[in-house]
Amino acid sequence: MIEVKDEILLDRLKNGDIEILGTLYERYKKQIFNHFLRCTRDYDLSNDLLMETFERVYKYCHSFNLSKKVRPWIFQIAVNLLKDTYKTSNRFESIDKTKVTYTIEAQDTSIDESYKHKQLYNALDQLDPYQRNIISMYYLLEMSYEDIATTENMSINNARIKVCRSLKKLKEILKDLEL
C-alpha cells in the first residue's frame, strides 16, 4: 500500500477533513506514546499526553507551513507538551517504579535480549529526566539535531554534544548495573 505523504494529510486536515487526524494518529502514536512513557514512566499520564498532543495537532494545524515536514512538527508538539508538564508538576523528580513494569514479549525475543532490554530500561530510569528526554528525542523520535536544538533552545552543535553526553552517562550507568 502506498502511504500518503504526511504533508498531503495535513493539508487536508487544514481544509477541514478531521478524519485525517486518525491516519496521523495511527502513524505516530506508538513512537510518541513510548517517548512519553520513557520520560514519565506513567501509563495513564502518557495516554493523557498522547491525547493532548493530537488535540494540539488539530488545534494548530492551520498555522503549519506546508513547506516544512510534518513529522518533526508533530514530535515537537509532543516534546513541548512534556516540557510544559514538567514545569507544572514535580512528579518526575522521583520515578514511581511501581507504575510501570517492563513487559517482555517472550515469543519475540530471546531471554538474553529480554535481559538486555530490561537493563537498558533500568539504566534509562536512572538518568536524570532531562537526559532521558534528550536521548529519547534522538533515538526514539529520531529528531534531527536541528529540531532538538529548536525544542531545547540551544545551538545545533550543542544539541549534538548533549546527546553524546547523555549517551555517555547512560553507558556509565549500565556499567554500574552490570557490576
Partner: peptide
C-alpha cells in the same frame, strides 16, 4: 556508544 544506540532502538515499543 553506536552499539548502545543500536540496542536502544531494539527495545520493543509498548502498545497503547
Amino acid at each position: 556508544l553506536k552499539q548502545l544506540v543500536s540496542d536502544l532502538k531494539e527495545i520493543p515499543l509498548e502498545t497503547i
